[in-house]
Each structure stands twice: as C-alpha cells, then as structure tokens.
C-alpha cells in the first residue's frame, strides 16, 4: 500500500507545471524515504530530477518500493480538478496498475477521486556523481527567469560567465546583442533577493536558451535558484521546494564542433 498526503494541492500543481514542458511521462519511484522522479526530455538533452522527502508529507506510507509510470499530461489535467487549498492524497495498492488522486475540500464537504492508469515506462536511470562545482550562483529565481526570457530574443544560446565579482549573461545574434551583469550582493538584507557567488575558478559556458527557459517554469516553487557550473560538465539548475525537497535540471554546455 502506498499513500501520500499533502495539505495543499498548490505545491503539486506547481511541480507538474515545472516538468510538463520537458517531459510527457515519468516514473515516480516511491520508497520509505519519499518520492523520486528522474527523466530525460524527449531529445535527451536535459535531465530532470525531482526529490520529495517522506517526512515532509502530512501522511506518508509506503509498504513496498513502488515505481509508478505516469502520463504527466494526464496527471496535470487531474490536478487542475483540485482547488489550491484542497488536501491531496495519492494512493496505490502494491502491484496496482492504477493510481488514485483524492481531493478533499478544507471544510471536508467535497471529496473527489480520480483514478489514472499507470504506464510501463522503460526509462533509463542515470547515475549522477557528486561534483564540486567551480562556481555556484544563488540568485532570485524571478530574475533568472527574466534574464532567460529577455536574452532568448537575441539568440538560441546564452553565455554565462561567472567570476567572483559577479555573473554575466550574454546573447548575440543577427538582431544584436545583449549583456546582463549581476554583481554579488554586498549587503544581504533580504536573503531571497541576494545574488551570492561561491567561486573556486571562473567559468564561461554556453547553454541553449530553450532549455533554460523550460527550467524557469519552476520559478513559482522557490524565490531563489541555484546554478552550479564547472567546465565541460552539465549545469545544474536547482529549485528548493520549501521543506519538501528539490527539483534539479541538468543541461550540458554547448561544445565547439
């Protein structure tokens, strides 16, 4: 038996919004420790990794490890049927071929349940090594989303150059060029507005704007985003999900042919 409950549907809706542009389907691996989803987008360019810890759910029971392949478009449709302040319970029997989403209104007067067929997805699971990154940038997630949106108008690719003074985002194409420089915040009054850089070595890397823009669909999940970069390895874009866990996106830098 698997059962996981969240007092508020909003967070699950936001999580679905954060992945559904990149992934059509995904396998949710459920265990004692929580729920994990790892999947590559259709073109195998980026990797999405979602971790939700069991101890942060309002109720969590997982008697046997369970892998549930879900169509994320269908899951998003089902979650649209929940009000933001509804309690959501996800339930599945061991070895079941369906999963049930139950929504309960705050006054307990409306209870709805939606059953969804599970899929057998033959997805590869990738092992990701622990990496010490040359540069780790923490910045407001809205600012990052804005920069990705603005610079994508100029080019398919964006250069991110990080030094200890600051981080520079650049794009250039037929229309012209754009540069946005953010200095490291000197006085951190409000942590969510700060730009903080931890640098071992400066890095300059080029990334596809299309994917960066897809990652920023996670912006409503967290005020801050963390960018971890090293030469010649994938960038990690991480959004923390309050107490519940995190979503990480991996994207390899473009390379000279």
């Amino acid at each position: 038996m698997f059962e996981a409950r969240l007092m508020n549907a909003t967070i699950l809706k936001k999580i679905l919004d954060a992945v559904k542009d990149l992934l059509n389907e995904g396998t949710f691996d459920c265990s004692d420790s929580g729920i994990q989803l790892q999947a590559m987008d259709n073109s195998h360019v980026s990797l999405v990794s979602l971790t939700l810890r069991s101890d942060s759910f309002d109720k969590f029971r997982c008697d046997r490890n369970l892998s549930m392949g879900m169509n994320l478009g269908t899951m998003a449709k089902i979650l649209k049927c929940a009000n933001n302040d509804d309690t959501v319970t996800i339930k599945a029997q061991d070895n079941a071929d369906t999963v049930t989403f139950m929504f309960e209104s705050q006054n307990h007067e409306k209870v709805s349940d939606y059953e969804m067929k599970l899929m057998n997805l033959d997805q590869e699971h990738l092992g990701i090594p622990d990496t010490d990154y040359s540069c780790v940038v923490r910045m407001p997630s809205m600012e990052f989303a804005r920069i990705c949106r603005d610079l994508a108008q100029f080019s398919e690719s964006m250069v991110i150059c990080c030094t200890k003074e600051g981080v520079k985002f650049s794009a250039s194409g037929d229309l012209g060029s754009a540069n946005v420089k953010l200095a490291q915040t000197s006085n951190v009054d409000k942590e969510e507005e700060a730009v903080i850089i931890e640098m071992q070595e400066p890095v300059t890397l080029t990334f596809a704007c299309r994917y960066l823009n897809a990652f920023t669909k996670a912006t409503p999940l967290c005020n801050q985003v963390q960018l971890s970069m090293s030469a010649d390895v994938p960038l990690v874009v991480e959004y923390r999900i309050s107490d519940l866990g995190h979503i990480r996106y991996y994207l390899a830098p473009k390379i000279e042919e």
């Binding site: 590559m40 195998h44 360019v45 980026s46 990797l47 590869e124 699971h125 990738l126 092992g127 990701i128 090594p129 690719s157 080029t206 596809a208 390895v233 994938p234 991996y250 994207l251 390899a252 473009k254 390379i255 000279e256 042919e257």
Partner: peptide, 14 residues
C-alpha cells in the same frame, strides 16, 4: 559552430 551534446554521455546508466 557549437553543438548540443546528449546529456547521457556525461552520466552512467544506473
């Protein structure tokens, strides 16, 4: 010209 590598080439199949 820069090309976009496949993410799979950076990690191993677990």
């Amino acid at each position: 010209i820069k090309t976009q590598p496949d993410i799979k080439q950076y990690y191993w199949i677990a």
